[in-house]
Every structure is written in C-alpha cells, then in structure tokens.
C-alpha cells in the first residue's frame, strides 16, 4: 500500500499550507491597511492641534 492513496496525502499538505499562506497574507494586508489609516489619522489630529493652538 506504499504509493496508493498518495493523492490524499498530496491534497492534505497542499490545502493546509495554502490555507496558512493565504491567512498570513491576509493578516499582513489588514495590518498594513490599519497602519496606514493610523498614520493618516495621527497626521490629521496633529494638524488640527497645530491649527487650534493659541498663537502667541
């Protein structure tokens, strides 16, 4: 029974590693989007603070 059913073995490993790679990529993309949004909001908040700071 050595080489019989090898397609199940191949499928199992292929699916699992594709799932992990897709998930890791999705995490990385979501993180990049969040970081970008955070930077934009921080810039806007800083700009507002500078604008509303009393001029001496």
């Amino acid at each position: 029974m050595g080489n019989a059913n090898n397609e199940y073995l191949f499928l199992a490993y292929t699916i699992v590693w594709i799932v992990f790679m897709v998930y890791a990529w999705s995490l990385s993309r979501r993180q990049s989007r969040l970081t970008k949004e955070l930077e934009e909001i921080k810039k806007r908040v800083l700009a507002k603070d500078e604008h509303s700071a009393p001029k001496v």
Binding site: Y23, L27, Q31, L34, T35, L38, I41, K42, R44, V45
Partner: peptide
C-alpha cells in the same frame, strides 16, 4: 506567531477606533 500577528493587529485596530472617536469628538 500568527497569534502575535493577529493580536498586534487587534491592538492597532483598537487604537484606530479610539483615535477616530477622539477625532469625531473634536
């Protein structure tokens, strides 16, 4: 490793929501 990545993302999302709320309040 994935847990740390996801946790880091969750914390960043929370920071973003707090900043958004602060922005809306001002």
């Amino acid at each position: 490793y994935l847990l740390r990545q996801r946790l880091h993302m969750g914390t960043a999302r929370r920071d973003l929501e707090q900043l958004r709320r602060g922005e809306t309040a001002t």
